[in-house]
Each structure stands twice: as structure tokens, then as C-alpha cells.
Computed example of a mutant assay.
Amino acid sequence: MFRRASGLLARSLFLSSSRSWVRPFSTDLPAAPTADSTFVEAWKKVVPNIEPPKTPIAFVKPRPSIPSSIPSKLTVNFVLPYASELSTKEVDMVIIPATTGQMGVLPGHVATIAELKPGVLSVHEGNEVTKYFISSGFAFIHANSYADVVAIEAVPIDQIDPTLVQKGLAEFTQKLSSASTDLEKAEAQIGVDMHSALNSALTG
């Protein structure tokens, strides 16, 4: 019954010429609704006797609206798959290693989505600068002076052992030169790129 209802609903949504299901993308939702009204309305037309399931938007927390003036601080969330490094932390600036180059983010920055490459994430708070080495990820910069940084792996710079970095770089460089298959070359190249970035982070 549920599968049939879902099929009918999908047909109703995608074949209807009177309504568009596509919503414009935005990096700054001023307030997240508790339910997707378009989906709920379409669901009730097809299966009025069954409560509509929740869509992903039902789980989005409301985000503060865009202020009329630029705030003095940037609010940063910095998360990893296994931990939250920073949660709604107010800072002066962050510098992220975007694939297009180092990007400084200040309060009032234009809404942006940036892919991250291996490199240093710097968090500036007054005279204090905290640096993390991150492997990859994405940064979502919102127009309301919020920045969400999502990384696959990260470690404070001061916890990295330079000796192990040099050793790893030498090992992967050797593997790259002796690799005989495309897979071996790709794995070795990833290792070289990562350890080169680590080395630059420590010496730069």
C-alpha cells in the first residue's frame, strides 16, 4: 500500500504541469519549516488517509536570519565524522584551504560553497590562532555570517610528528616510482599529495 502510494505521489509530483517541485538552492535558510508544505499537500491529494512521512527538511534546525548589519564575529561550526571540533564558536576569521586557493572568511562574507583540499585551516580569535591540518571536505559559508566546515579528517598542527611525515613522504614517493598498475599509482599519488601537504603545513 505504501509503495503504491509513493509511486502515485511521485507521478503526481513529476508529471504535474501546474506546480514545480524544484526549489531554488540557498545557502542561508532564514528559518527552517517543520515540514515541506509542497510535499505534504501533494501527499494528501494522493493518500489522504495516511500521515505523510517526514522529509529531510523536517530535521533542519532553524538558522538565524541575515542581520541588517554585518556582525563583529563569524560563527563557525567545524565538524568531523566522529567529532565536533567547534560548535557555534564566535571568531574573527577563518582561513580555509579551498581547491581554488587559500580563502579568508570574515563576518559578512558572501554565501559560498567551497571544496577543501589537504592543507591548513586557521581559526583566528583575537591574538590567538589555532591551526588544524585537514585532509579534505567542504566549507559552507552563509550570508548571515555563519560558516560550516565539514572535514573528513583533521588534527591540530602541533600534534603532527615531522619525522613521521618525512618517513611517509619517502615511502609513498618510492611506491609511486615503482607502481606498475593504475591502482597502485593512484594510491601512491594520494599518499604523496597528502604527505607533501603535511610537510608544507609544518614548514610553511
Rank of each mutant, 00 (worst) to 15 (best):
T34Q: 15
L169A: 09
D148K: 01
H109Q: 08
A143M: 05
N199H: 14
Q174M: 06
R23P: 01
K185W: 00
A201V: 06
A197M: 05
T38C: 07
V46G: 03
G108A: 11
A35R: 15
G168D: 14
F14M: 11
A35T: 15
H142K: 14
L202P: 04
I66H: 04
G119P: 02
A98L: 03
V22C: 05
F140C: 05
Y146E: 10
F59P: 05
I113A: 11
V150H: 01
F39I: 10
A186P: 00
R4A: 13
H109L: 08
K44E: 12
P48H: 07
Q159C: 10
A10F: 11
N49T: 14
S37R: 15
S145A: 10
I66Q: 08
Y82P: 00
T181E: 04
A197I: 03
E125H: 08
P118N: 04
N144F: 05
T27P: 04
A10R: 13
S135W: 02
S72G: 10
F25T: 12
F138Q: 03
W43G: 01
S20P: 01
K45A: 14
L202C: 10
V94A: 02
V79L: 07
T99H: 05
V192L: 04
M194H: 07
I95M: 07
A32C: 15
I113E: 08
I157A: 06
V155R: 12
R4Y: 06
V155D: 05
I95S: 07
Q166C: 08
Q189A: 09
I113N: 04
L121M: 04
K131A: 08
K175F: 07
V79K: 01
D158A: 09
V46R: 06
A188P: 02
Q174T: 12
S145H: 01
G191D: 02
I95Y: 01
S135I: 05
A147Q: 02
A10Y: 12
R3Q: 13
E90A: 14
G108H: 09
T112L: 15
L74A: 02
R19M: 07
K45P: 00
T181Q: 05
E41L: 11
S200H: 10
R23I: 03
R3N: 12
E187V: 11
V47I: 09
V105M: 07
D36G: 12
F2P: 00
